[in-house]
Design a protein around this nucleic acid. Structure first.
Lengths: 137, 137
DNA sequence: TTTAAATACTACTTGTAGGTGGTAAATAAT
DNA sequence: ATTATTTACCACCTACAAGTAGTATTTAAA
């Protein structure tokens, strides 16, 4: 039970850029700092830009930064852009009668019912992360 | 953020057999009831048997049932047997300083700190599942 | 003892996430 | 203008999860 590697990379780079807003970072700089394969990170950045999270400046001295229009970004937005959020509409355990109205234990956790994964992970926003404790790059 | 398909199959079949203890079920019967590919289910059953969760009777009229020695089985045992549990020892977000003592938000969720995924999913046991509400096969 | 129905086991195929390489296009610095 | 450095884009490679096929072995029923 885990995130896709690509999602992990996306979360990592988004938290990083969120904590360095207003400064352009190239893929080359970030792949060194965050220990993410250079070429692969390029693709992830392209996806995140297409999803509207980032502003990009092409050419020499270019790079990426958080879209200045965004005052907040939730993790479910990022996760959804990479691996989708509709993962567990059906019942994990395969109960034919399992539904939002009549959920099994695992369904409750993956759906938007309380307390669920959504509240623990999806509804965390970037402001909550990284700035806490002394955890920074 | 999801289980591996194989883990999903394993959980499904274990919950099913738990709710039908004392009766032998063949792979052929179960793959029809649980909608799991026949040959693939065979391999999963073999793995679950090797892990000690099941008793097997070979030959005609044979099949699988829950190991009578087991008075309870936790989901973390099943998940661990299929995909391992050491998935997120390192920090998902890549913070170098993130640790059990000084965890980031996501680390707390994946580690054994309260309230965590472990308590929500891993520590659920088979008795808690299926019998609830009217959710049965 | 033969047969049918089941697991055990091995090898192969397929699909996809993860990762690499190369080149075109953009753009700031010179 | 030229050059260096960056993103954009496309094709390919790799590893592994998921799924398939076939045969050997086991065993209860006939």
């Amino acid at each position: 039970m885990r995130f896709q590697k690509t999602t992990e990379y996306a979360l990592r780079v988004m938290v990083f850029l969120w904590n360095h807003q207003g400064e352009l970072y190239s893929v080359n700089r970030m792949h060194k700092i965050l220990n993410i394969p250079y070429k692969y990170l390029g693709r992830v950045m392209h996806t995140l830009t297409g999803a509207g999270f980032l502003e990009v400046q092409q050419g020499k001295m270019g790079g990426y930064q958080i879209n200045a229009q965004k005052s907040q970004i939730y993790l479910y937005e990022i996760i959804g852009a990479i691996e989708g959020l509709d993962s567990y509409e059906r019942c994990v355990l395969g109960f034919p009668e399992c539904s939002d109205e009549n959920p099994c234990t695992l369904h409750k956790i993956w759906s938007n019912q309380q307390p669920g994964l959504k509240d623990m992970v999806y509804n965390v926003c970037l402001n909550d992360l990284g700035a806490e404790y002394n955890l920074k790059y």
